[in-house]
Simulated scan of single mutants.
Amino acid sequence: MRRFLALAFLFPSAALAAQCGTWSASMEDDEGGRVAMASVCIGTEAKRSDLFLRCGGQDLLSLRVMLSADTALDPGDSPEFTTPLRLTVDGQVLDRPSRYEAMDGAMVTEFPMDAKVVGALQSGKVVTLAFPKTAFKPMDFPLKGSRAAIDWLIDACRRE
């Protein structure tokens, strides 16, 4: 353990890479101030993709997908780009509408904190993201640690 901590300080990018694959939750800086967020990532550096959950308003969570630059999802020049998002958690298919937010380069959808999708994300092993009406190749995000991270996020959202 000591060796890993020493390496984490000497090589911070290696420490960050080690965090991909396990969900975490924390307060993060955003253009609107500090926000509660739960997240997981896959890949490294230019090939890194992130999946974020954050407070989305009155009893809502906002799921934000930040894809690596080499993905095949291209919103084109349309600031109004929308497409269905398919979340598959351990074989359970959950379809959601999603929209592109150009400022962050994220695909976004919202749902109630008590929605079926939240329970699936907390109890599953892997979530597969797909945008079926596009050329995007589906990608898998692990759900290791998601229950604790999402529970923390929901508690933080309710305190806001």
Rank of each mutant, 00 (worst) to 15 (best):
F9H: 12
T82R: 08
A8W: 01
D29G: 13
D95Y: 00
L5Q: 13
S78D: 14
S123T: 10
M27S: 13
G33I: 08
S68C: 09
P79G: 10
P84I: 08
P97F: 03
L61V: 09
R34W: 06
P97Y: 01
G91S: 14
D30V: 13
S146L: 03
D95R: 04
D29R: 15
L5C: 09
V108C: 10
D70G: 03
P142K: 04
R3H: 10
P75E: 05
D151C: 12
S39K: 13
P142L: 05
G145E: 05
M66R: 07
Q122F: 10
T128F: 00
P132Y: 06
Y100R: 04
P142V: 03
E31A: 12
D74E: 09
L67T: 00
T128Y: 00
R147Q: 15
D29C: 09
K125D: 12
A18D: 08
A25H: 11
D90C: 07
R99A: 14
A72V: 07
A46R: 13
D70S: 10
L129C: 02
L16M: 14
A135S: 12
F136E: 00
A135L: 07
P84L: 07
E31F: 12
F131M: 07
M103H: 13
A106L: 02
G57N: 04
D74C: 01
Q19M: 13
R86H: 10
A46G: 06
L60E: 08
T71Q: 14
P12T: 09
L153C: 14
M37G: 05
L94N: 12
K144W: 00
D29V: 13
W152L: 05
G119C: 02
Q19D: 13
A8I: 01
M139G: 02
S13L: 07
K144N: 07
V108G: 04
D70K: 03
V89G: 08
S78W: 02
L53E: 11
F9T: 08
F52I: 06
M139F: 01
R64I: 01
A130K: 03
G56Y: 00
L67E: 00
R99K: 10
G57I: 05
G76S: 03
W152V: 06
M66V: 02
T22K: 13
A8Y: 02
L5S: 11
K137L: 05
R147H: 15
Q19G: 12
D77E: 15
R159G: 04
V126F: 04
T82D: 04
L16E: 15
A149D: 04
E101K: 08
A135P: 01
A115E: 14
F141S: 05
T83C: 08
Q92M: 11
R2G: 07
